[in-house]
Simulated scan of single mutants.
Amino acid sequence: MTDPGVLDKAGSSLSSGLRWRTTAIVGVSILVLGVFLIWGFTAGWIAAVPPVLQDFFRLLKPFAPYSTAVVAAIAGLIAWRSHSHRRLSDNRAEWWRRTQYTLDLLMSSDDPLKRNTGMSLLGHIIADPTATQADAALLKDTVNALVTDIINQQATKLESDTATQAGRRGWRWRRP
Rank of each mutant, 00 (worst) to 15 (best):
S108N: 14
K114N: 09
T132D: 08
I30R: 00
P112L: 00
L158S: 09
D55P: 01
A136R: 14
V71R: 00
K140F: 01
W39L: 15
A79G: 06
M119Q: 11
K114V: 04
D111C: 09
V70F: 14
A137L: 14
T68H: 08
Y101D: 13
M119W: 04
T68E: 02
R19L: 02
L139K: 02
V32S: 05
A47H: 10
I150L: 11
G27F: 08
K114H: 13
A72S: 10
G34D: 02
R87M: 12
S109P: 01
N152W: 07
R86A: 03
V71P: 02
A136L: 09
R115I: 01
F41V: 06
G44E: 08
G118N: 12
Q100G: 15
P65L: 04
A47L: 06
I38V: 15
F56R: 05
L121C: 12
V147F: 03
V28G: 04
T22I: 12
D55V: 13
V70I: 15
L59A: 14
T162D: 07
A163F: 07
P51S: 11
A127H: 03
L139H: 02
P65D: 07
A69P: 02
L105T: 01
T156C: 02
L103M: 15
L122W: 03
W95L: 01
W39T: 11
L158G: 05
L77D: 04
I125L: 15
G34S: 06
T130H: 01
A93Q: 09
Y101W: 08
N91D: 15
V143F: 14
A134D: 01
P65T: 06
L103K: 09
G123N: 10
R97D: 07
I25K: 12
N116S: 13
K114A: 15
I150C: 14
G118D: 07
V143I: 13
L113D: 15
D110W: 03
W80Q: 07
H124N: 10
L31C: 02
G40Y: 04
I38G: 02
L88Y: 13
I125T: 08
L146D: 05
I150S: 09
P112R: 04
V49T: 10
R58P: 01
Y66A: 11
D149T: 14
N152D: 12
S67I: 05
M107D: 13
G76I: 07
R58M: 02
A75C: 07
A145W: 00
D90H: 03
D90F: 03
P62M: 00
P51C: 00
I150T: 15
T156I: 08
G76E: 09
Q54Y: 02
L59M: 12
R87A: 14
I125S: 05
I150F: 10
V70M: 13
V52S: 11
T130G: 00
D149K: 13
P51H: 01
L103W: 06
W39R: 11
P112K: 01
T102Y: 00
Y101L: 05
S109F: 11
S29K: 08
E159L: 10
I78S: 07
T156F: 02
T22M: 11
V52Y: 02
R87W: 12
G40T: 12
L113R: 04
M119I: 06
N116H: 07
